[in-house]
Simulated assay, not measured.
Amino acid sequence: MSSTMTIVVPISIGAPKLEPALFNLAATLTPRLATDGEFHGPSIDEFFPETLFSIAGVPVHRITLIQLIAVAILVLIMVLGTRRLKVVPGRFQSVVEMGFGFVRNNVAHEMLGRKDGERFMPLLTTIFFMTLFFNLTGLIPFFNIAGTSIAAVPFLLAIVSYVTFIYAGLRKSPKNFFKNALFPAGVPWPAYIIVTPLEFISTFLVRPVTLMLRLLMNMVVGHMLLVLCFSATWFFFFTVGGGWAFLGIGTLAFSGAFSVFEILVAVLQAYIFTVLTAVYIQLAVAEEH
């Protein structure tokens, strides 16, 4: 019996194969189940799906399709919720406005104030809802994997956050932004020999990496736990059966509990990523810069 539980940073790279594409799609949309009498735990190979087809030389696999579907659903919700705005909103418009209000009041205005909050509101809203919808695909039947569980998406979001941080700082104080970031006030000048390299590493190198890894690893670990619990449930109920089905009840309970927990993690990670982006922007536009 083999079970791979090693956690690595998965980067989706598909081989340019066309022939197995759509025939194997249905099989890859569900977790691996024990059909040969052995238990198959989650594998890191699930983050490296086969290429289904290519568009202009760019490989498209099932996680790419999940991401595209999530984007299409998000755009559709936003368009339908805002195309005919009413003074007295209906239920659907109210839900959309609640989402915008949550980002505006709890992130943008809270972290940046009203002026800068409104200025960066479109970016923060996009980051929050994109991250949220991509995270939630890991809990949707037949998707079963988060769009943020491959490194490309968290990396892209981290780069956007990082570039916005630098842009905001340079826009606020073109001459002093890097100086204040690397040479903080109140430090004795000999200490800059140590402080400046540390500030450079922590501010301009570590920050985007930690942003990416925090989101990525939460989604990867969450997926592995869910697949482990559901695969074990299937194994105990339908493969070995008998008295072992009692253990299946336990793994099924854990599956439900982890599913609820993953909803919380999906929302929380979207919120944390957006808040940290706002915090970095706030640091860039602070008066000392």
Rank of each mutant, 00 (worst) to 15 (best):
F92I: 15
L139C: 01
L80T: 12
K115S: 11
M98K: 15
R91K: 11
T82W: 01
V87P: 14
T137V: 01
H109A: 05
V88P: 01
V79S: 03
T125Y: 15
R91A: 06
M111H: 00
V75F: 01
R84I: 06
V95I: 14
N135D: 07
N135H: 03
V71I: 11
I77G: 08
I127Q: 10
F129V: 01
L124A: 14
Q93A: 11
G113M: 02
G101I: 14
V79N: 02
M78A: 04
V71C: 10
M78T: 04
H109P: 02
T137C: 00
L124V: 09
F102Q: 01
R84A: 12
G113L: 01
T82G: 09
F134D: 13
I127W: 07
M130K: 07
V88N: 12
G117W: 00
L85Q: 12
V88F: 01
A70S: 06
L74S: 09
L139N: 07
G138V: 07
A108G: 09
A108F: 04
F102E: 02
L76G: 11
L80M: 09
D116Y: 03
F129K: 09
L132H: 06
L112Y: 02
T137R: 00
R104T: 10
P122T: 11
R104H: 07
T131C: 06
R104V: 03
V95H: 14
E110G: 00
A72K: 08
G138P: 00
